[in-house]
């Protein structure tokens, strides 16, 4: 336990001192502000352009903007934030292998499991804090400009995308234990996601795969039913647990803690 908290402190110090925490905060604030801002600015932009568009013969009808427009924007943008997050943190393990910094730590008697768990907690914590920060900002602006009650299942759909992010991060953790290079971790995780995405194109499988959670925007509109998503949520949760357990087991067995390029 002491080892875990010690290593957690080291990981947090790393995110702070290398400026990652600052970048993340800015990133997620930006993504929180962006969606309502775009929604708010759209009619105005349209008006600006309508004159020139009218000349080309396109007529613009009065556009109605509300909280739904902003929420739709949110789910269009937030995957980019997730990708940036993943690019920033996929080296969480591999850079330790590349530099060989774990050698001294492990020969001091550090438990392997404490290392993986600490890394997992840090990933989870940063994603949780960042994502819900962006969500809270968007929620607040939407309530301020419009009215959130127009959208249904706001919390559930937000949690769905959050869970999808957790699943991807658990994949990153697993592949970080297996591979020693950043690019392999990215390739393997990307490959996994793509495979699941393609499988999701089969209507029969669609409801049982994590990628279903990408459609969570639909939940905001009336007429879509939440139970359609329950299988995907359950299965994604199970997959997260499986990935994390597999990471711990695999890292317990891992003994080459320095990448080959000696």
């Amino acid at each position: 336990m002491k080892q875990l908290t010690t290593f957690l402190r080291k990981e947090l110090l790393y995110t702070i001192r290398t400026g990652r925490l600052l970048i993340l905060t800015i990133l997620f604030i930006l993504f929180g502000v962006m969606s309502p801002a775009i929604a708010k600015l759209t009619p105005w932009l349209m008006e600006m352009m309508s004159d020139s568009l009218a000349e080309t013969g396109i007529m613009i009808t009065e556009m109605e903007v509300n909280a739904l427009t902003s929420w739709t924007q949110f789910y269009k943008n937030i995957p980019i934030a997730l990708i940036v997050f993943i690019l920033m943190f996929s080296n969480i393990m591999t850079q330790e292998y590349q530099r060989g910094t774990l050698i001294l730590i492990v020969t001091k008697g550090m438990k392997h499991s404490a290392i993986v768990i600490a890394k997992g907690i840090v990933l989870c914590f940063l994603w949780t804090a960042g994502y819900w920060l962006a969500f809270a900002i968007t929620y607040w602006y939407n309530a301020y400009f419009w009215n959130n009650s127009i959208a249904s299942n706001i919390g559930f759909s937000a949690a769905s995308f959050y869970l999808l992010g957790l699943w991807l991060l658990s994949l990153i953790l697993l592949f970080s234990v297996v591979f020693t290079s950043y690019s392999n971790v990215l390739l393997a995780s990307g490959g996994c996601f793509l495979t699941v995405y393609l499988l999701g194109l089969f209507p029969k499988l669609e409801n049982y795969l994590p990628v279903k959670l990408l459609q969570c925007t639909n939940l905001l509109f009336e007429g879509s039913s939440r139970p359609d998503y329950y299988y995907a949520v359950g299965i994604t949760l199970v997959l997260c647990v499986v990935n994390i357990t597999a990471s711990i087991l695999a890292f317990n067995r891992r003994t080459r803690l320095k990448a080959a390029s000696q």
Partner: peptide
Amino acid sequence: PDVPEFYDFM
């Protein structure tokens, strides 16, 4: 070790 590697942000 022959080339000790530390966490260099500390």
